[in-house]
Every structure is written in C-alpha cells, then in structure tokens.
Design a protein around this nucleic acid. Structure first.
Lengths: 126, 126
DNA sequence: CGGGATCCTGTATGATACTG
DNA sequence: CAGTATCATACAGGATCCCG
C-alpha cells in the first residue's frame, strides 16, 4: 500500500509515469514526417538540405521541427561543422536505428498489401 | 521506352502510381490515433464504446473518423448488429493484423528505450 | 546553408446537439 | 448506442524575412 518499495521492481506511481512518458513518446514519434525522415536517413549521414530533397514534400519548417524532436529524444545525432557556409549533418543513433527497423516493417507492409488495400478502398468508395 | 510492356513486370507509370498510393496510405495510417486503435483492438472484437474506453483520450469524433479510414483501407471489419440499441463491432482484418505486428514492434521499442530517451531528453532540455 | 522568428491560412480536433 | 452535422478554436503547416 502506502509503504515505499525498496525492491528493484517499480511501484505503481513509477509505472504510471512510465506509461504516460511512453504514450508521450509514442504520440510524438508516430507521425508521418518523423517516419519519413527516419526512413530517408537509413544508415546514411545526410545534410539538412539533402534531407529536404530526400523527403518528398516536406517544408523547411516541418523538417527542422521534426529533426529537433528526434534529436531531443536522442534518435538522431546532429553534427555541426563550423565552416562557412555552415554544414549540418544528421545521423540515426542506435535507438533511432532500432526504430527504423519498425518503420521499415511498415514500409514493407504497405507494399505487400497495396493490392488488398486498393481493392478495399474501391469497394468502400463505390 | 514508349512501347507497352506485355511482361508481368510493372512499367514506370505503374510504379509511380504505386509509389504515390503507398505514400498516401503511409501518410494516412502513420498517425497516433490509428496506431492506438489498432493496438487496442489486437485480436479482440470490440464495440465502439469499448474502443472509446480502451483508447485513452480519444474523442468520439476522432474515433469514428479513424475507424472509417481504417475500414476504407480494409484494415478493420465493421459488423453492425441491427438490434436496438444498435451494436457495432470492430475487428482487425488480416492486413490489419499484419500491421499490428509493426505497431507492436514500436510499442516494444518505446518501452525498451524509455531510459535512453528520457535521459536524452533531459540532456537536451537542460 | 541552416535555422529562427513572424505572420497567416487551412485543417484538425473538441464540444454540443440531433437522428435512427 | 452509434453516427452525423454543426460550430468554435487551437494548432499544424506554409510562406517569407532576417541572422550567423
């Protein structure tokens, strides 16, 4: 009950906090731009402008915004080269790479079920 | 070139169409509500109101909206029981189940890297 | 070149009310 | 109970300008 636990296992409050944190991360990361950026990076290191070209249709603002978010969560590493003009490169960290496996899975899924989905959509729309 | 291909392999135009379709699906499905709904359904069949309770914080409107989208893509099946009051149940289809594997992967990832992420975030914010 | 700040618009989302 | 429609609003996202 109210007694503090000294064991290694987390108490209820910890679990709740962990859950809300997990939920927060999930909500932030599970969006198309973040996924497309992660997918574009893959195992490469890319500059801001290169990323902008790779991720079809992303705006300057969305790219910076999502890169900040991913950097904040430690999914991408940002390396600034103090040259002129400046050169900023982004690379997936290990957690980022791990997430990429998931995103790759979703890409595979999309292509695998493309037929199913297109058919279902036609059926639904008609 | 301009010559029509009679082989089974898709032509350039088909590939472009497939890509844009894949991108469309990706953009629609890769959002937190869709993911949370898929995760909540799992292997169960749930009513609208049950789903509303399972997916913490989702509004009536967002739930219907996302369920329609998932139904349109054939990821969930909607069964209407013509009773009074009406009873509507939702179940993941096979493509939906396949996608759930991916979403599960992301949930696992979230919990696995919770520590990393929290630490990175504190470092970034401070 | 990378990115921050600002302004402005459309869309996403929530709250509410109504129908079968 | 499930779903649709309406309204109000916050926020996402684009365009633009300026800075290091």
């Amino acid at each position: 009950m109210g007694t503090k636990q000294f064991t290694g296992s987390p108490g209820e409050a910890d679990l709740r906090r962990a859950d809300s944190l997990a939920r927060e991360i999930f909500s932030d990361v599970a969006n198309k731009w973040a996924f497309l950026i992660i997918e574009a990076l893959g195992e490469r290191t890319l500059r801001f402008s290169e990323l902008r070209n790779e991720v079809e249709g992303i705006s300057h603002k969305m790219l910076t915004q999502n890169l900040r978010m991913l950097e904040r969560y430690g999914l991408v590493e940002r390396q600034v080269h103090p040259t002129v003009p400046p050169r900023v490169e982004y690379t997936l960290t290990e957690p980022g790479q791990a997430l990429r496996a998931t995103v790759d899975g979703m890409c595979g899924w999309t292509h695998q079920y493309l037929g199913h989905i297109e058919a279902a959509r036609r059926r639904f729309d008609g």
